[in-house]
Structures are given as structure tokens and as C-alpha cells.
Computed example of a mutant assay.
Amino acid sequence: MLCSQYWFSSWLLAPIEHQHQPYNINSPDLADIEQIFVLAGYYESRSTLPDHTRWPNASYKRNTTALFLHEKLQVPILITGGHFLSDKQVSYSEFSKVFFLDKGVAEEALIAVPHGHNTFTEISAVVEHLNQKRTLIISSATHIPRIELFLESIAPEADYVFFPVEYLSRKQLSFVVNPPALYALRSSQRAIYEYLALTYYTWFMPER
């Protein structure tokens, strides 16, 4: 019952999601960005539905935000994601690359790295790219603290700025009792997962 309350799920999520300053696409603070790194999400590779319906909300927000920022900043997009989809013969980065090509991004502006089956291995696959240029990193707001933990461990020389998307909580909390809500339950689950992951990787960081 507690986890199904919006105020409680927001209370759990807020410390994770609001650690970094949010930017808008037109922010002058992004003028010195040299590349965009958009982390993998998911794509239903075996579905017969139209392409735009196969992207989960988080993945779609990551990609569309990267697209808008590329159009604004005119810098390359770094894409990761290996063979973790339902069809193991294809990589996530293949579909992500097609997404951007279909939206008019030039192929030479896309750097597809078809490796990584989780956050740690994705970042490990692009450390050299991250060390070379000031990078704008796009991912879900709940995902950012874990990305930062990994970057501090395996890419301490990298110069980056976070651009969180898909916020699930409000920074300013208010106490309002609501009927049990599935959305709040899912948000609470996501928060608990991230807290457990951060605790685990703080103590047991894998080797690159």
C-alpha cells in the first residue's frame, strides 16, 4: 500500500533523480559539448508492429532527446548496445542507428559501438571515445547515479555533462493520499532496484 502512493514513490526517487542540474536543449551551458552519448534502452526486435511502437518510453525519450540535441549542437552521436535483444543475432545499436538515419542524421555523424549488455559494459566499450571529447550523456534520470559511479571507476579522465530524461518524480514533494496506483508501484520498484544496484556496485565494482 505504501509503495502504491505517489508521494512515497517520489520520496524514494527524488534523491536519485535530482542529483544533477537539469538542462533544456537551448541552454548556453551546452555550447562546448563535442559529442553526445546516448545509452541503450530496449527495442522489440521480433515484433511485427510498426517501428515506432517497438521502442519503450525510456528508449524513445533518450533517442529523441539525442536527435534534438544533435540538430541544435551539430555534434556526433555515440550509440552503444550489443546483442541483448529478443533476437540475439542483432545488436541494439543497429536499430538505434537506423532510428537516427530515418530522422535525417547523416551516417558520418553516428558512431555505433555494437557492444555492451548492461551499463558497465556499455561504458567500458566507449571509454576511449569519452576520454577524447567533452561529452553530453543522455539517459533516464534514475539511471544517472549508476552511470556516474561507473564513470568515476573506469573513465576518471572523461569530461562529461549529464542530460537526464524520463523523470518519474518531482523535486518538490507534497503529501497526498491516493488510491493504490500501479504507476507508483512501478516507480517504487525502480527506485528500490537502483538503490540496491548502487549499494552492490559500491562494494563490488566489476573489473573492466
Results as ranks from 00 to 15, higher is better:
residue 72 K to P: 04
residue 81 G to C: 11
residue 58 A to I: 02
residue 53 T to V: 07
residue 70 H to N: 08
residue 44 E to H: 14
residue 46 R to A: 13
residue 58 A to P: 11
residue 60 Y to W: 15
residue 44 E to L: 04
residue 44 E to Q: 01
residue 70 H to A: 11
residue 69 L to N: 13
residue 65 T to L: 08
residue 58 A to H: 12
residue 84 F to A: 11
residue 77 I to G: 11
residue 80 T to I: 12
residue 49 L to G: 10
residue 54 R to A: 10
residue 55 W to S: 06
residue 60 Y to D: 05
residue 65 T to R: 07
residue 70 H to G: 07
residue 52 H to C: 04
residue 83 H to T: 01
residue 37 F to A: 14
residue 45 S to C: 05
residue 35 Q to P: 12
residue 41 G to H: 13
residue 69 L to A: 12
residue 61 K to G: 05
residue 76 P to V: 01
residue 85 L to E: 05
residue 72 K to V: 13
residue 72 K to G: 02
residue 76 P to W: 15
residue 85 L to K: 08
residue 82 G to A: 09
residue 58 A to C: 03
residue 81 G to I: 09
residue 38 V to N: 13
residue 52 H to I: 09
residue 52 H to M: 05
residue 73 L to N: 11
residue 45 S to Q: 09
residue 81 G to S: 08
residue 65 T to P: 15
residue 41 G to V: 01
residue 79 I to H: 13
residue 50 P to W: 06
residue 62 R to W: 12
residue 43 Y to V: 00
residue 34 E to F: 09
residue 63 N to V: 01
residue 48 T to C: 08
residue 88 K to A: 06
residue 33 I to Q: 09
residue 38 V to I: 15
residue 35 Q to Y: 02
residue 40 A to N: 10
residue 50 P to Y: 15
residue 63 N to Q: 09
residue 70 H to M: 14
residue 88 K to V: 14
residue 84 F to D: 09
residue 47 S to V: 01
residue 60 Y to R: 15
residue 51 D to I: 10
residue 39 L to F: 12
residue 50 P to S: 02
residue 57 N to Y: 14
residue 68 F to T: 15
residue 44 E to V: 05
residue 80 T to C: 15
residue 82 G to V: 03
residue 78 L to G: 03
residue 74 Q to M: 03
residue 58 A to N: 07
residue 53 T to G: 06
residue 38 V to L: 03
residue 75 V to N: 05
residue 82 G to E: 03
residue 87 D to L: 01
residue 73 L to T: 06
residue 37 F to Y: 10
residue 47 S to F: 00
residue 61 K to V: 06
residue 45 S to D: 11
residue 85 L to G: 05
residue 47 S to Q: 00
residue 69 L to I: 02
residue 88 K to D: 07
residue 64 T to D: 06
residue 71 E to H: 13
residue 73 L to P: 07
residue 53 T to R: 02
residue 40 A to Y: 01
residue 64 T to F: 13
residue 80 T to Y: 11
residue 73 L to D: 01
residue 85 L to P: 00
residue 85 L to M: 10
residue 46 R to V: 15
residue 79 I to L: 13
residue 83 H to C: 00
residue 50 P to I: 06
residue 42 Y to P: 02
residue 56 P to H: 02
residue 77 I to C: 14
residue 77 I to R: 10
residue 36 I to V: 10
residue 50 P to M: 00
residue 40 A to D: 07
residue 69 L to C: 07
residue 85 L to W: 00
residue 63 N to T: 01
residue 53 T to E: 13
residue 73 L to W: 08
residue 48 T to L: 06
residue 69 L to R: 00
residue 53 T to N: 13
residue 63 N to G: 01
residue 61 K to E: 10
residue 55 W to E: 00
residue 80 T to F: 01
residue 59 S to N: 03
residue 35 Q to R: 05
residue 69 L to K: 03
residue 36 I to K: 03
residue 45 S to E: 02
residue 73 L to M: 08
residue 47 S to I: 04
residue 40 A to C: 06
residue 65 T to Y: 09
residue 83 H to R: 05
residue 61 K to P: 03
residue 64 T to H: 14
residue 54 R to C: 03
residue 50 P to T: 05
residue 71 E to K: 13
residue 74 Q to T: 06
residue 46 R to I: 03
residue 55 W to T: 00
residue 57 N to E: 11
residue 44 E to N: 04
residue 88 K to N: 09
residue 73 L to I: 09
residue 33 I to A: 15
residue 40 A to Q: 00
residue 73 L to Y: 03
residue 60 Y to A: 06
residue 62 R to T: 12
residue 61 K to M: 10
residue 49 L to N: 10
